[in-house]
Amino acid sequence: MDFKRKRRPWRLLRLIQALIVLGLILGATALWVARPVPLPDDHFAGLTGDAARGETVFWASGCASCHAEEGAEGDARLILTGGRQFVSDFGTFVAPNISSDPVYGIGGWTVQDLGNAVLRGVAPDGRHYYPAFPYASYARMTPQDLVDLHAFMATLPASNRPNEGHDLAMPFAFRPGIGLWKRFVAHDEGWVVTDALSPQEKRGRYLAEGLAHCGECHTPRTALGGLDRSRWFAGAPNPSGEGRIPNISPALLRWSEEDLVAYFTYGLTPDFDSAGGSMTDVIHNLARLPESDRAAIAAYLQKVRPVQ
């Protein structure tokens, strides 16, 4: 009996050792699954950027809405100095300087660097970007559009404003966890609207679901923070905590295509109300697109499934 009692501590020690080894294996596996996955090295091979086309990509993607100084107008919206704060349930995100400055901005980035950031949410140093940067939607951007965007952004003014860090609480400040979120929650599931579409409607889908990332605000999220694709464009709480982002599915938004194009151009609704809040920035962007693109988005919105 005395001998058996002496063996019990050793059994307990072996159990603890086994649990530690198992924990290390699981942790290493999680880190491997959560690792940043950059684009293939030849993703942009053979492509040449066109700054004029890149300007359309720039405005469609809403870069100035987050990265220009708040309240900037006219050409000042092209100075992507960063610094704007975005308050959320996870903490406060601060937009970085993405001007052409090679030290404080992204002037030293290659096309591959920009592609990894915009399409994969991976920084040049290999860190995950937080999904306040809507790369899950931008992932639909074509390689040519990304190369054109890089060419246009290289023509923009430089700003030497230093970047500020985000103010996030744990566990949200733990960047490797973003890799797991990318892998299991925000992975690419293809287009939301998969009905047969005309070329105009396909262009509208590309703009609305991809570049303009409309679903990031207008679609409610799941418990894990992914977009609830079953309620596409059904409206969602405003991330700032003030009110709600409206339902823009045909269940509630019954404007004609002409009404929508006018709204995207001038910010005026059919009953002569005007756009407010963050939508004013969106209108600034859409108004700079060719009218054919605004009409394409309007045509696409008619194809979205109505959701109450």
Score class of each variant (00 low, 15 high):
G108Y: 15
G46P: 04
G210V: 05
A196D: 15
A298L: 02
I25R: 06
A68C: 08
A186T: 15
P131L: 08
S292T: 09
H284R: 07
R140L: 11
P239Y: 07
D50P: 09
P102H: 15
A298V: 01
H43G: 15
S292W: 13
S61I: 02
H128L: 06
A234Q: 09
A169D: 12
E291I: 11
G83Y: 03
R305C: 05
R294Y: 06
A251I: 01
E209R: 00
D293R: 02
E201H: 04
P220N: 08
Y135T: 00
F3R: 12
P40Y: 15
A298D: 07
V87P: 04
L12V: 13
E258F: 02
F184H: 12
P290F: 14
P176G: 12
A296P: 00
G276L: 09
Y300M: 00
M279T: 13
A132G: 08
Y130L: 00
G82T: 01
M170R: 06
L19S: 10
T48I: 15
Y135L: 01
E201C: 03
P270C: 07
L146S: 11
V185W: 10
R53C: 10
P131I: 02
A173C: 02
F86W: 00
Y206W: 13
H187I: 14
Y129A: 01
D273V: 15
F174D: 04
L227N: 12
T81Q: 07
G115A: 04
P131V: 05
R305W: 13
R305V: 09
P131G: 04
H187E: 14
Y206K: 08
R221I: 05
L22M: 10
A251H: 02
S88E: 02
F264M: 10
Y300A: 01
G235V: 11
I283D: 07
M279S: 10
L26M: 07
Q144P: 03
A299H: 03
G165L: 09
A64N: 11
A296T: 00
A173I: 01
P270M: 06
P40D: 14
K4A: 14
K6L: 11
V307C: 01
L146F: 13
